[in-house]
Every structure is written in C-alpha cells, then in structure tokens.
Design a protein around this nucleic acid. Sequence first.
RNA 1: GAGCCCGUGGCUCAGCGGUAGAGCGUUCGGUUCACAUCCGAAAGGUCGAUGGUUCAAAUCCAUCCGGGCUCACCA
Length: 712
Amino acid sequence: MDKVYNHKDVEEKIYKEWEEKDFFTPEVNPKGKPYSIILPPPNANAPLHFGHAMYVIEDILIRFKRMQGFRALWLPGADHAGFETQFVFEKKLQLEGKSRFDYDREELYKMIWDFVQSNRPVMENQLRRLGFSLDWSRKKFTLDEDIVKIVYKTFKKLFDDGLVYREKRLVNYCTYDGTSFSDLEVVYLEKEAKLYFIKYPIVGEKDKFIKVATTRPETMLGDTAIAVNPKDTRYKKLLGKKVSVPLTGGREIEIISDETVDMEFGTGAVKVTPAHDFNDYEIGQKHNLDYIPVIGFGGKMTDAALRFSGLYVKEARREVVKDLGELQLLGKTTDIKHTVPTCYKCKNPIEPLLMYQWFVKMEPLAGRAIEAVKSGKIKVYPKTMEKLYFQFLENIHDWNISRQIVWGIRVPAFKCEKCGEWEVTSGEVREKCGKCSGKMNQDEDVFDTWFSSGQWPFAVLRASQPGDFKEFYPTTVMETGYDILRWWVARMVMLGIYETKKVPFETIVLHGLVNDPLGKKMSKSKGNVVNPLELLDTYGADAVRFALVYGTALGNDQSLSYPKLQAMRNFTNKLWNMARFIDMNRIQNSKLKTQNNLTMQQLNNLAINENDKEMIEKTAELTKEVTRLLEKYDFNHAAQNLYDFIWHEFADVYIEDVKNRIDEQSFIILNSLFLILLKLLHPFMPFVTEEIYKLLGGEGDLIVSKWPVKNA
RNA sequence: GAGCCCGUGGCUCAGCGGUAGAGCGUUCGGUUCACAUCCGAAAGGUCGAUGGUUCAAAUCCAUCCGGGCUCACCA
C-alpha cells in the first residue's frame, strides 16, 4: 500500500466499479423491504453548487438502508428549471447581440433544449464525483415525454375538479422579463421613495380639494375612486361626493369608504387604482369599481394614460409630477422608506397587471397538506421546520401557474377563435371547437416549473420503470434544503395527496445552507461562490462529505471551513494508515490467517484477552449507537461518534495495545473489528472505506455488505 | 409590523434540566512508530444581559441587547 491515501486514484475507479456492478439499483436486495428517496432534481442546465453537496445526507441514508438489506432506491433526475434557464439563455443571446424576439417559439425552444442537453452531463458527473449511489438507470428529466403527459393529466384533473380556473386577475408581472410570477417569486426590497401629496378637486365646489398621499403618482391616471376610513370623521361629509382626476380631462370618481384604509397614513385618504395595486384591486372588487389599466406589459403607459401614453413608468411619473406642479395640485413631497415588490431574478420592479392566467385554487389542497403533517402521516426533521411549513400553507393564495415564456410545458388548453370557448385536454391537440367547430388555438403560456416539479415523486415513479410506483410510493424520505420548503416540498405534498390520495413521502428531512467561510450566503453577484469540485480535488470526496455532516446539527446553516475539511482529509489518511498497519502485519506474519469478517458473536467466542473483549464490546455499542442515530437523522452525532471512536479509541488505544502482543488471534480480532468499523463508516466515507475493505480482504464489496448488528 | 433561528473557550461549532464538550489554533513533553506526522499532557469559558421557575438552568419562562433569515397589500 502507498504511504499516503491518494483519493484521486481511488474515487473514479471505485465509482465505476460500483456502477458496472449495478449496485445502485434496488434490485441488489430483491427481497428487501422498499426504501426510497427521490433526489431533488437539480437544474439540468447549471453546475452544482454547495447546497447540492448536502444531498450527501440522502446518500448516507441510502447506503445505510441498502446495507441493512432494504430495496433501497435513490432516483436521480434533472429539472428543466423553466424561467431560470430561459433567463440564462437570453443572457447568452444578449451577449451574441440577439434576443428571444429574433426567433419563433419552436426555434427558441429547440435552441434552449440543445443548450440544456449539452450542459446536463456536467451536473450529473458532479453527482458522481460526490460518490452518490444514484440509480442512473432510472434517471428522468422533467421534460421527458412520459413526465409531461402526467403533468397534463394532473392539470386536466384539477380543471375538471374545479381546482384550476382561468381568470383575469391582478398578477405579479415583470415587464423586463416579460412574464408573470407566483407570489413566491416576488421579493420585497426596502427602498427610499418619495411620497407625493396630490390634490383632487371636488366637483362643483370651487377651490375645494381632497388630498391623498402616494408613491406612485403616475397610476392616478387609472384611479377609479378615492377611499377613506368609515370611522374617519374628517372625511365623513365628503363621502359620496365626486372628485375629478387631474390630468385625465375631467374624469370623475367617487369618494368611498373602506375599513382597510389606514387613517394614520398620509392624509387618511387614498387613491384607488384597482388595475395596478393588490390592495386597490380588493377594494375595487368590493365596491364594484372600474379597472383602467394605464401600464402595459412592456412597462410603458397605455393609451388610457392619454398624453403620457408610450412613456416608461419612470418617465411618466416625472412628467405627471411636473404637470401636477404646474396645475398647483401638488402638495408637499416627503421621503419615505417602503418595500417595493421586485423580480427575484432581475431585481426590477414587479408591476401588478391585470391579465388572464391559469390559477390553482389552493385552499382545499393546503388543508389536506396541513392535516398530513399535523396527523403525523408526514414527519418533519428537524421538527422546528414545521412552523415554516404551516406558516406558508395557512396563509396561502391561489397559485398563478402561467408563465409567458417558451421553456417549459405548454399549457394544454385550447381556445376557440369563434366562440371563445376553452377546452383543457390531457395533452391532445384540439383543432376544432366542440361547440361551434371554430378553429382552436393553444394557449401560448407554459407552466410554472414548480407546477411540474411539484408532481415529481409520483410522476417520476410512474414513469421510471413498471412497478416502481406501486413498490416505492409513497417514498420514505424527502430530503432537501429548508429554503425550498415552500416552493417545492409543500407543493409536492399538496399535489401528491391530490393526485394519488397518499402522501408523497413519509418523512421530510431538511438540511441547512452552506455559507462561505465568513458566514455569508454564497452568491454569484458577491463573487464568493466556492465550486464544490475544487474541494473534491483538494480534499477528496470522503473528506468533503464528512465535513458537511460533522459538527453541524441538522437544519442549521454552516460556514464552509477549510480547517475542518483538512481535519477530515487527515481522518481519511488516518484510516488508510490504520489499514496499512494491519496489512503489514499480515504480510510480515505470513502464518497469520486472513480469516476475518467475523461477526460480533463469533468474535466474542474467540476472544480471550480482556482488552480484546472490551474492544469488541465497545464496537458493538458503537454499532448500536450509530444505527440509532442514523434512524433519527442525527448525522452529526453519528459522524462524531465514529470519528472519536475510530481515531481516539480504536487507533490511539487499542491498536497501540495490540501492537505489543500481536498474535494470530488478536490479529483476526483486530482485522475483523476494523472491517466492522469500515462498514459503519461507509455511508459517510464510501470511497476510502471500500478501497481499504478490499485491500484487507473483506468479502465481496463493502457497499453491499451487511450492516453490522450488535448482537449477531 | 409579525414570526423564526442564532449568540457556549482565540476560531468553527456540538450540547438544550443534573458537576462545561469537540475539531482547529496555542503551550509543554514524547516518538519516527501504520500515519502529508502521530501520541500524551496543559492552558483557555461567571455558556449575550437581566430577572424568574426549579432541589438543580448553557438547557425552561419573561424582558432586553447583538447578528441572521423569513413572512406581510402600508398607499
């Protein structure tokens, strides 16, 4: 054996061997009970970041269960990541001096498809480098034909059940990216703004005004009421009176009362623009107001904005303020801080705009999802995360699932040109209207990516291999970062229960984020992103894996620590040298048998020396403890126990002791105990343990060896 | 505005009701042994602050301070 463990020589070789021997499929344990985890499908188009390396937790579970004899399935996939990917692709086009408008829908889709396919192996190979024992024979993509079909079916079912509807409503729209979003994709940023006080002349009463305060004067062109609080005595006598909206050529609106108006803010009177503000939209619904859209989808003022038509919102604001000043209708302006809805991707302001979109009615779905966790049908680790889950589901709004992009699953809905009738299908194309035989056109929009990934567990198991769904659904564990609990996990629960009548997974395990060494969130814009591959090169996959679970409680964020990585790398080397010691003794004492792989029971029968007996007992205890900790998803302590015991008890004390009294019997015990420790450590450090196991003459392959049991 | 998490030796973090723990770092000693060393030992903490509950609190409760995250329609 080499003097020093060299992970580079070992990892690739071993992974290939495992893959060639088909150890990653559940079929290695044909008779075991099913145990399944679906890998959260990474974006097919993007290289992995450090968060993905945390999926090592899933590999630990799968290897553990595989060794215990379960039919352990860990199913890999890739996500088309609709808007994310189209955004990246458009950036690329931009660099080439092009834009999405230079291509028709089909061309653009094809280009993105090729782009994604060419990048996809990068991500998949990184998963291999991490040592993940994923069943590649079952890998799926969210745009695979069979998956798409399932997504269509769910949509149709939701529609038929009245849980999907198409309506013209105010939605979050990014005029830069040209698409609408769900609530979750809107980020509220605190910004400095000007609060303008504007006078609206009261009709028929000369020189009388009502003053309102607003940060968005340009939207006044679409005002359809002024609202005050019914309790506000200041305005009681003005209720029902008309005012004329400045700059609109005398358009008249009414002063109404609504209890949502905050008397303390501004003047206590608020302008109501139902077509461009969520609050105002609500008020508009209640009071049956008109909707006058003055901002268009391109971010420019519409014709309804009269002479401001064609101006961008910002310009329009400036002009409106200027004109109001000239008309003596502008009061004071003050500086305030307020939160502005912005696009999570491009950071430009989100405009609430009125449009027809497909919505999923969430309340009934959310209720069942809440119930699933409250009743214990789904367990959450760590338990504190339940709060996040409930918080989201208890305050949920209907989900806008339409996106105005091409990269994704196109909505299978067709509209008749003639009679306007909509028909939703399970993917079949409708050319003729069933009612009037008019020509039908498919909706241009695609689904929100999360609508398809929200169906992933049942979709992927129905599509992977015949029998998989029956065998492996519900899956055992869903493990992912807590940051996508709402985006993804909660939606999987809702859609899973809806479509299959069963929870999609029995347990949710959530890990924390990996921050940079200074504790800051890694992000491209900050330039502090650490490429996991570099660390794999430097420290080896085993060390990186171990460092990620060691010393951090489940669900807590951690900062990348180079000293820790180094310590873990040293640990792999320590293991290697323990093996070298054992190996050298075998060679030097050729009469020593290579008999090993004895069970605890056999070792107990063999041992005479007190120290040997004690070590057997301690190893048995460790086995019990590590097993117990893994069962309760306490990877941190399982890892710490292994580390401490192997280094500071087994190596520092026991090996030092055996050194001075080595004989046939003690060698067999030493060797066997070490192999047991390798088994316990294997889920965490699969490469070095497998390599050593084989060098020391372990039977077969460690990855499929039997998990040690205390009393066997 | 509301909620959540974190604040433990120089650094990174475990512990979360029963005499303060680990890794890294530091200091001293030993060894070249299977070990890019490794082994042994030591120094170093009134567990953010203040009150309370308890026989007993880093651990439970309250308030406050500091750091982070999330949610929310403040015009």
